[in-house]
Design a protein around this nucleic acid. Structure first.
Length: 382
RNA sequence: GGGCAGGCGCCAAAGUAGGAGAGUUGGGGCGGACUGUAAAUCCGUUGGCUAAGCCUUAGGGGGUUCGAUUCCCUCCCUGCCCA
């Protein structure tokens, strides 16, 4: 993997770059659609490429390991072939499941024990195991096993947790170095900086991980309920500790405005379930603001969802039709909504790159946030 | 024409051997939430009003009773069966 910087906005810390992998180039800043179970829910590979313009997608170690299981993935020729996706894939390690499935797991010194949410069976994840699974999956970018801390998080717990993540990082690195790719292309490993909302811990975590010279650095443990301003502050603080020549990935973020603010603070990569999940829940992002397409107000609205959007959905269907699909619980609604929301996110980062290269990112960002973060329905109500 | 079973909120049903009550469940309607996906999920709301209360309400009308959605009479309607 190669990462080169291609542009830098004069104000702020926003920058553009290019990640070259064996499955192609990723332009940064980039948003990565989430495909937890080896599918970006409700859309096809063709949608992802042609209608959305996805350059890389995310998948998940924990979920794929439980189902369909590694044997199926390996026999299928690795995840790329299995799911018919020939562009880069990043896999999360299961660190987020330590957070989101906290009722079903037990932290151990060397790893974490999960009870499967599918059948209750027990599974033990260690850094080494998680690296091996990601070898079997064949992701282009693998993530270290970490612990994603919740919010709020007591300082003492954050100290212990961050130490654990740092200790595990070494084991992740060793397992990575002593194993090899299975499918004939290179794989890379990103470290994850933790430390909750505590700057001293973030600094410590970053410095410890830098010694291990990962291919890129993620900022984890944010967007778990803390105020956005706190998140921005920690992001701003932490990116200063990541060398300029390494990609910076803010895990799990976020709303469009969160992404723009983080780009402004020097982040290159993002992922979030929001565009996909919210699409399936009738919550659509548009250039004019949030459209909750199930609302009765759209019953007779035959205009396109977003007149400024060039996606398949906006080119061909009206708000009234989309609303009808959602109200009638028709599957097509999920697909059309997902195509649009993901296209909106990808357009957002594409436009960000353009503005950074023009040097006008900051002003544009502020203007756009004002436009897109309002709720269209609520506004028109007044 | 006769017999039987029923009619409860926008809809479909539950329940009540008379007594907690605008009142159970599901659906529908309306609104909201969702941030490294246990999510095509979840939550709220859904008679009226001069709103910590009051009023109206269980097919219509009448009756018994301190009290009726529940019992009785009658009419109307629906379904099934028989002519």
């Amino acid at each position: 993997m190669k990462f080169e910087l291609t542009g830098q906005n004069p104000a702020g810390k926003a920058r553009t770059g290019k990640i070259t992998t064996d499955h192609g180039i990723i332009n940064t800043p980039i948003f990565m659609p989430v495909g937890t179970q080896g599918t970006v829910k409700a859309v096809t590979e063709e949608n992802l490429k042609n209608d959305i313009g996805a350059e890389i997608i995310l998948s998940n170690t924990y979920h794929l390991y439980l189902r369909p299981g590694m044997e199926i993935i390996e026999n299928g020729g690795g995840l790329h072939r299995f799911m018919n996706w020939d562009r880069p894939v990043l896999t999360d390690s299961g660190g987020f499941q330590i957070y989101s499935l906290s009722d079903l797991r037990k932290m151990k010194k060397e790893g974490v024990e999960f009870r499967s949410h599918l059948d209750g069976s027990s599974h033990y994840f260690t850094p080494e195991k998680v690296i091996n699974i990601q070898r079997q999956i064949g992701s282009d970018i693998m993530m270290v096993l970490d612990e994603c801390t919740p919010w709020p998080c007591e300082y003492d717990y954050a100290v212990k947790s961050t130490e654990l993540t740092s200790r595990w990082a070494i084991l992740n690195r060793e397992a990575f170095d002593s194993s090899a790719p299975l499918y004939g292309f290179n794989q890379n490993l990103f470290g994850i900086i933790q430390g909750s909302v505590y700057k001293d811990l973030r600094e410590k975590s970053a410095k410890e991980l830098l010694k291990l010279d990962f291919d890129g650095y993620a900022i984890g443990g944010l967007a778990v309920g803390e105020p956005a301003e706190v998140m921005y502050e920690i992001v701003d603080f932490t990116t200063d500790y990541i060398p300029a020549n390494k990609p910076r990935y803010l895990m799990g973020v976020g709303r469009p405005e969160n992404i723009l603010e983080a780009i402004s603070r020097g982040v290159d990569m993002f992922d979030c379930v929001m565009p996909t999940r919210n699409a399936r829940n009738a919550y659509l992002f548009t250039s004019q603001g949030i459209v909750t397409i199930r609302n009765a107000r759209y019953k007779n609205d035959y205009s396109p969802l977003d007149p400024e959007c060039g996606c398949y959905t906006c080119r061909n269907y009206s708000r009234a039709y989309l609303r009808h699909l959602f109200v009638a619980n028709e599957i097509l609604g999920l697909q059309l909504a997902t195509i649009h929301n993901l296209r909106f996110y990808l357009d957002l980062v594409r436009e960000s790159r353009r503005k950074i290269e023009e040097g006008t990112f900051e002003d544009w960002k502020n203007e756009i946030i004002n436009k897109i973060s309002i709720n269209v329905s609520a506004t028109e109500e007044k």
